[in-house]
Design a protein around this nucleic acid. Structure first.
Length: 459
RNA sequence: GUCCCGUUCGUCUAGUCAGGUUUAGGACGCAUGGAUUUCAUCCAUGAAACAGAGGUUCGAAUCCUUUACGGGACGCCA
């Protein structure tokens, strides 16, 4: 086992964002790749904004994606507790160290970290006021993705708020020290904070960890500019779960946001991800989220599923649409889904695609309706085929094919003279699974009944 | 405004660190054609990019400079 220790440190203040999930995934992959330890630490120092729901959703999302943690809530280790709200004694002791070293001062009830260097006052345009600045030595951030980044911190910052709560920068560093974190993998939005953190590590006399700042996930330009926010379409992990996306597909897709295996392989199992992941191969530039590609990857996974697993996942979508319930025959369900699997690219579209298998109350596609009745012989075709099908004793794909062929021969035409109209009559549309298997699955009774209904309706 | 980071097809990216094997590769999407009773499926083909300008070099997507553009940070939020 290596000595690598990484942490994912979310703050439970809202729905879990796709970027948050990616940060978690990359940390997890790095830990698994290197044989290190993955720590989940909950940064709940902001009592006003933390919620239990957000925490539940976060944990739920991680589990859904197959991300587990070696230390963290529910997996207590020697560095716990893993909620920052329970670590105040530790923070107090570290604060004392800084106080004793003369690196703090109080102002307006808050405690500030005091930078080292010559002090001067300057009008700051951004702040819009005179502020005190410090001529500090530049700090070098050792970043595994970007190389060395040099930055200078020039203003003291708050490490304990006037309400007594320690601030993010402070607890983040203290915990990384206390939890012996070796690699900090987080979003690029933290890159400019990192100089503050390095200042703190230095003040504690501790060698800073290696950093790896992941590129931002950017908005689709039609949603505006900048990084993707929780309000943007497709931004929330819970949304994918609700829409019955496959977790392994979502995981595969977000792994590809800013990282690639460097060859043409795009579909990667979790084992392959672990085996091939490397921080060296992480992209520097921001990545834009593309829902179409996400759907494509999801479809690839859907096609590759064993039928039983497919039926299992599909059931959730069909249940939500009220098409099936506990009474639905499993064998029938499986045979229906078998013919749909190759054709339909998402579970959320499945109910619309396959409703007629489970209900007589299915939608009529008007375009298909127009097409089928344009020729004017549709009703005749139905009247021709109905007695033939009614007389058929053996209701299988093969015998159906024979029946259509025979009729076609006797009328000197092709069997597919009847296909579109019969398909429309039994399904309300002109597209769907292969025709003959579909008839076989629907069954004689249902097919005849729908033919009759159609004849009456359009006669 | 200041500082930091970035920039290869519309999008995700390979190639960049170790300059020549590149008519810059793959995938999504798009277009066209085909298979098919049909299709949201499948197959084939195509259009499509090294941000601009200088430089170094026999040779630059690859190295350097610079401009432009994009992103991030600048909270008693994390």
């Amino acid at each position: 086992m290596s000595n690598v220790r990484v942490r994912f440190a979310p703050s439970p203040t809202g729905s879990t964002h796709i970027g948050t999930a990616r940060t978690a995934l990359f940390n997890w992959l790095y830990a698994r790749r290197t044989g290190g330890v993955f720590v989940l630490r909950i940064e709940d120092t902001d009592k006003e904004r933390n919620t239990q729901e957000a925490l539940d959703e976060l944990i739920d999302g991680l589990k859904w994606l197959g991300i587990d943690w070696d230390e963290g809530p529910g997996a207590e280790g020697e560095h716990g507790p893993y909620f920052q709200s329970q670590r105040n004694e530790l923070y107090a002791s570290y604060l004392k160290k800084l106080e004793e070293a003369g690196r703090t001062y109080e102002k307006d009830g808050a405690i500030y970290f005091k930078l080292e260097g010559e002090r001067y006052t300057e009008f700051d345009k951004y702040v819009g006021a005179e502020v005190e600045k410090v001529k500090t030595q530049p700090v070098v951030i050792d970043d595994l993705i970007r190389g060395n980044v040099t930055r200078r911190e020039e203003r003291d910052f708050v490490i304990q708020r006037s309400n007594g709560d320690p601030s993010f920068h402070f607890v983040n560093v203290v915990d990384d020290i206390a939890m012996k974190i070796t690699h900090v993998i987080r979003g690029e939005d933290h890159l400019s904070n990192t100089s503050k953190h390095v200042e703190l590590f230095n003040a504690f006399g501790v060698e800073p960890p290696k950093f790896a700042h992941l590129p931002m996930i950017l908005k689709n330009p039609k949603d505006g500019k900048g990084k993707m926010s929780k309000r943007d379409k497709g931004a929330l992990i819970a949304e994918y779960k609700d829409r019955d996306f496959l977790p392994e597909a979502v995981r595969n897709f977000i792994a590809l946001l800013g990282w690639s295996p460097k060859d043409d392989q795009e579909i990667l199992s979790i084992e392959e991800l672990v085996e091939r992941f490397s921080l060296d191969d992480v992209q520097k530039g921001g990545a834009r989220f593309d829902e179409k590609k996400m759907s494509h990857i999801n479809f690839e996974y859907m096609k590759a599923m064993p039928v039983e697993a497919y039926a299992n996942s599909a059931s959730s979508a069909l249940r939500k649409a009220g098409l099936i319930d506990d009474a639905t025959d499993q064998d029938y369900l499986v045979s229906c889904l078998k013919v749909c699997q190759e054709k339909i690219d998402s579970f959320e579209n499945l109910p619309g695609f396959a409703a007629y298998f489970f209900s007589d109350d299915y939608a009529i596609n008007e375009k298909a309706e127009g097409k089928v009745f344009k020729k004017g012989d549709a009703i005749t075709r139905i009247q021709e085929i109905t007695p033939v099908l009614a007389a058929l004793e053996d209701w299988t794909e093969a015998s159906l094919e024979g029946a259509f062929n025979q009729l076609a021969e006797s009328l000197e035409t092709k069997p597919f003279a009847w296909f579109p109209v019969v398909r429309f009559a039994v399904s309300g549309t002109n597209s769907g699974p292969d025709f003959l298997p579909m008839l076989e699955i629907l069954g004689k009774e249902r097919v005849l009944e729908r033919l009759k209904k159609t004849e009456e309706k359009y006669a």
